[in-house]
């Protein structure tokens, strides 16, 4: 069963990254559930595994365009695949750090892994309905997917 406080911690970590790293706030779209199958993913996905009080997967999924602009906004001219992977991993890492700070020792969070390619998928634990939270930044939309048991 989902808990609002847990999801808020992940959402806050995500928006906080944009505020600090890009100096431009992101807004949160209308969240919804995925009741059948797995959510579609974008080009770059930073995935973290959660254990402890809750178990599951959380990932930040962003299109190439958004990450490219984000890199440029951070004065980085190299927008290669490797840099984009590093960036999406960094977002996931920041989310993890914020959650550790906000929720303390209740959560054990793994180091991020990166999944690329819109055709790929992120393995989600059985028994939980993923919540998709759209993240709007400039004209781009990424998504934060929280799937906790």
């Amino acid at each position: 069963m989902l808990e609002e406080q847990d999801i808020r911690a992940f959402v806050h970590g995500t928006t906080r990254y944009f505020e600090v790293a890009a100096q431009q706030a992101a807004s949160v779209g209308s969240p919804y559930l995925v009741t059948e199958g797995a959510p579609e993913i974008h080009d770059y996905n930073g995935v973290i595994a959660v254990s402890g009080r809750r178990n599951g997967i959380v990932y930040f999924s962003a299109p190439r365009g958004m990450l490219t602009v984000l890199l440029m906004k951070m004065n980085e001219s190299n927008v290669s695949h490797e840099y984009l992977c590093d960036l999406v991993g960094e977002v996931a890492n920041t989310i993890a750090g914020n959650v550790r700070r906000d929720l303390g020792k209740d959560f054990a969070i793994s180091v991020p892994s990166v999944v690329t390619g819109a055709g790929n998928s992120v393995d989600l634990p059985a028994g939980g309905r993923p919540v998709v939270i759209p993240i709007h930044w400039r004209s781009h939309v990424a998504k934060l997917v929280v799937c906790l048991q």
């Binding site: 069963m1 989902l2 999801i7 949160v28």
Partner: peptide, 18 residues
């Protein structure tokens, strides 16, 4: 209103579905 305000709805919707 913003998307953050709708998080409780999603959580409750999930609970009702369960």
């Amino acid at each position: 209103l913003s998307g953050n305000d709708f998080l409780p709805l999603v959580v409750n919707l999930d609970e009702i579905l369960g």
